[in-house]
Simulated assay, not measured.
Amino acid sequence: MSSGTRPAGTGRLVTGTAWALLFLGLWLGGGGTDEGPLGSSAPTTGDIAAVGRPPGAELPPARAPLAPVAPRRVEVPSLGVDAPVVPRGLDSAGAIDPPPFEEPDTVGWFGSGTKPGAAGAALFVGHVDTETRPAVFYGLSAARPGAKVLVTRTDGSVAEFTVDDVQVFPREEFDATKVYGPREPGRAELRLITCGGTFDRATGAYTANVVVSAYLTG
């Protein structure tokens, strides 16, 4: 993971093919810095790795998208997550710049992308751990379909999302379009992303990403 020293919202907005290439470089693991000694942080095999959507799971219907408003806070009650959200841009390598390591309990939102509640997929990223303790998204791989994600927006409204999918993508199987593209056209969706797999001290990075997908239901 990058050091996160650039100001919030910096970087460039890219689209089309460049958008996919951007996310091929999105790895929220150590990145040769000071994160990741706690070891395995998530299921480690397969692209659904003991999570995903149980057969026949009953999920609520999607509701129509809301007006686009920036996020201020995110909660996942079933995981004990209750964290501030800050806008982030791109780092020098063209990947989303996560919150600084000095802010392990803060979630970053890709501020040049979709606002949570609006049509499209809003992207939230967070650290899984630090050198000494778990960080904001340490328990993300334990999320299950049907769990609620509440996003408080800057106008005071709260967008309620329901988790419908939890996947673990190894580096060699990472598919930017599959991970970050909307699952259903016109639907308001949310992605919560962190490191997964095991920490490789030789490369200073985790071996996979945990991706929780949710959609607007209230």
Rank of each mutant, 00 (worst) to 15 (best):
V149D: 04
L150H: 13
L150R: 15
L150I: 11
T152L: 14
R153Y: 06
T154M: 10
D155P: 05
D155T: 10
D155I: 10
D155L: 10
G156V: 09
G156F: 10
G156T: 04
S157C: 01
S157V: 08
V158N: 07
V158Y: 06
V158C: 10
V158W: 08
V158D: 08
A159S: 12
A159R: 00
E160M: 09
E160L: 11
F161A: 03
F161H: 00
T162W: 07
V163C: 10
V163M: 07
V163L: 13
D165P: 06
D165L: 15
V166Y: 02
V166P: 00
Q167E: 14
Q167S: 15
Q167K: 11
V168I: 15
F169I: 10
F169W: 15
F169M: 12
P170T: 00
P170Y: 00
P170A: 03
P170I: 01
R171E: 12
E172Y: 07
E172I: 04
E173P: 02
E173N: 11
A176Q: 03
A176T: 07
T177D: 12
T177R: 13
T177L: 14
T177W: 09
V179M: 12
V179F: 10
Y180A: 06
Y180M: 11
Y180C: 10
Y180E: 05
G181N: 09
G181H: 10
R183G: 15
R183M: 13
E184S: 13
E184K: 14
P185K: 05
G186P: 15
R187S: 14
L190E: 01
L190M: 06
L190A: 02
R191S: 03
R191Y: 03
L192T: 04
L192P: 05
I193F: 06
T194N: 07
T194Y: 01
C195R: 02
C195P: 02
C195S: 11
G196H: 02
G196Y: 01
G196W: 00
G196M: 00
G196L: 01
T198I: 08
F199R: 00
F199C: 04
